[in-house]
Amino acid sequence: MDMQAPAETVLSNARIVLDGEVMTGAVRMQGREIADVSPGAARGEDMGGDLLIPGLIELHTDNLERHIQPRPRVNWPHDAAILAHDGELASVGITTVFDAMRVGSVPSEHGGYEAYARGLASELMQLRAANALKISHFLHLRAEVCSATLADELAQFGPEDRVGIVSLMDHTPGQRQFRDMSKLKAYVQGKRSLTEAQWQEHVANLKALREANGAAHEAATVAAAGRFGAVLASHDDTTEAHVATSAGYGIRLAEFPTTQEAARACKAHGIAVMMGAPNLIRGGSHSGNVAAQALAEADLLDIVSSDYVPSALLTSAFRLARMWDDLPRAIACVTATPAKATGLTDRGRIAPGMKADMVRVTMLGDTPVVRAVWSQGRRVA
């Protein structure tokens, strides 16, 4: 695949979404970087008055897992799955992704799951080294403390693996995301077709694993994030006590707090709040937790993630723009703010010296439509 960006590209007659304003003008790219942003007319590729926004930055997506296992117990060839995932993200305007991979497995006859992250990460890095990918990929290790093998799996990764985020997860039944056991039962039995006896065994097994390993796994996760140089995130904080524990670990990013109480506590501790785009678009959480719209209306929402629907990231930004009547602020939730939260100082904004990651968007009523995508100066969609 040709990874070379053109020596120079000028995109003119665009409505450019900048920090705090939308300016009609032109963007000049030289190689992989933005060289100049100027108001008014300029010679170049005519954008026809369409919006030009920074490339979207996705911090938490399960999309790669969906590609490697498109149906329960159906495993897809990994190279093909990674390439399809990469192409799908590029097509919806995502130019940087932190691919979520679970670490921490649960060996069990019923309801268990095996380790996979180390092998999949190596395959992803091999494709990146072969210049086969369209967009920038980092790793997001989802560390499940309620498991049997978390510490051993974390030990298989190092600073060379581009681990950008480690999220501290605890899916012990009866708390956090699945405080409502009926919601958890419906989710697990629908996904795995467990009998009642198998369901009871599954719950008892997970609770026993948390009791035996939880404290040691939390400590191993915090230490691993430091070893990788990665951002440490919390997951499904529900109470002020959860948030206080997160703050004590040095966490500055909260994934999907489940209550407004927890989101407010995050704000008090200087922890950025990230919510899922499907929650925002559907008007509520599929698990019965706090609605992302309620947090946005209360000024408690900082970052949006596509979670399990890649195209939802762009759609959610424009939903927020209508809610807040502020397009630059909404676009920042999927560009500049996630870049800042993960220490990526070279992207997330349209400005000289930044990576030439941009998306051309036109509107079909209230629906944003991607017309073109550039990743580091190359047209990829």
Score class of each variant (00 low, 15 high):
134 K>Q: 15
135 I>D: 12
135 I>K: 05
135 I>G: 11
137 H>D: 03
138 F>M: 13
140 H>V: 02
141 L>K: 08
144 E>F: 05
144 E>I: 07
144 E>Y: 08
145 V>N: 06
147 S>N: 00
148 A>H: 02
148 A>Y: 01
148 A>P: 05
150 L>Q: 04
150 L>K: 04
151 A>S: 07
152 D>F: 04
152 D>I: 04
153 E>C: 03
154 L>N: 04
154 L>E: 02
157 F>W: 06
157 F>C: 04
158 G>N: 06
159 P>F: 00
159 P>D: 08
161 D>V: 10
163 V>D: 08
165 I>E: 03
167 S>D: 08
167 S>W: 07
167 S>M: 13
172 T>W: 08
173 P>Q: 03
173 P>N: 07
174 G>L: 03
174 G>M: 01
175 Q>I: 13
175 Q>H: 14
175 Q>A: 10
176 R>I: 05
177 Q>L: 14
178 F>P: 03
181 M>T: 04
181 M>C: 06
181 M>E: 09
181 M>I: 09
182 S>W: 10
183 K>H: 14
183 K>V: 15
184 L>C: 01
186 A>S: 10
186 A>M: 01
187 Y>F: 15
189 Q>L: 10
189 Q>H: 08
190 G>V: 08
190 G>L: 02
190 G>M: 11
193 S>H: 15
194 L>Q: 02
194 L>G: 06
196 E>A: 12
198 Q>L: 11
200 Q>N: 13
200 Q>T: 14
202 H>A: 02
203 V>H: 09
203 V>Q: 10
204 A>K: 05
204 A>R: 09
205 N>D: 08
207 K>H: 01
207 K>V: 01
207 K>R: 15
207 K>T: 12
207 K>Y: 10
208 A>W: 06
209 L>K: 10
209 L>H: 10
209 L>F: 03
211 E>A: 15
211 E>M: 10
211 E>L: 10
212 A>R: 14
213 N>C: 09
213 N>G: 03
213 N>F: 11
213 N>K: 04
214 G>V: 01
214 G>Y: 05
214 G>H: 00
214 G>A: 04
216 A>R: 09
216 A>Y: 03
217 H>G: 01
218 E>Q: 12
218 E>I: 14
220 A>M: 07
221 T>H: 06
223 A>H: 10
225 A>G: 12
226 G>D: 08
228 F>V: 07
228 F>P: 12
230 A>S: 09
230 A>V: 14
230 A>L: 14
231 V>Q: 13
231 V>A: 15
231 V>Y: 14
232 L>D: 01
234 S>D: 08
236 D>N: 03
236 D>I: 04
237 D>V: 01
238 T>P: 02
239 T>F: 00
239 T>H: 04
240 E>L: 13
241 A>K: 12
241 A>V: 13
242 H>D: 06
242 H>M: 02
243 V>I: 11
243 V>C: 00
245 T>R: 15
246 S>I: 11
248 G>Q: 12
249 Y>D: 02
249 Y>I: 07
249 Y>H: 15
250 G>H: 05
250 G>Y: 03
256 F>M: 10
258 T>F: 00
259 T>C: 00
259 T>S: 06
261 E>H: 11
263 A>E: 00
265 A>P: 04
265 A>H: 06
266 C>H: 02
266 C>Q: 02
268 A>F: 07
268 A>W: 08
268 A>Y: 06
269 H>W: 13
269 H>M: 00
269 H>D: 14
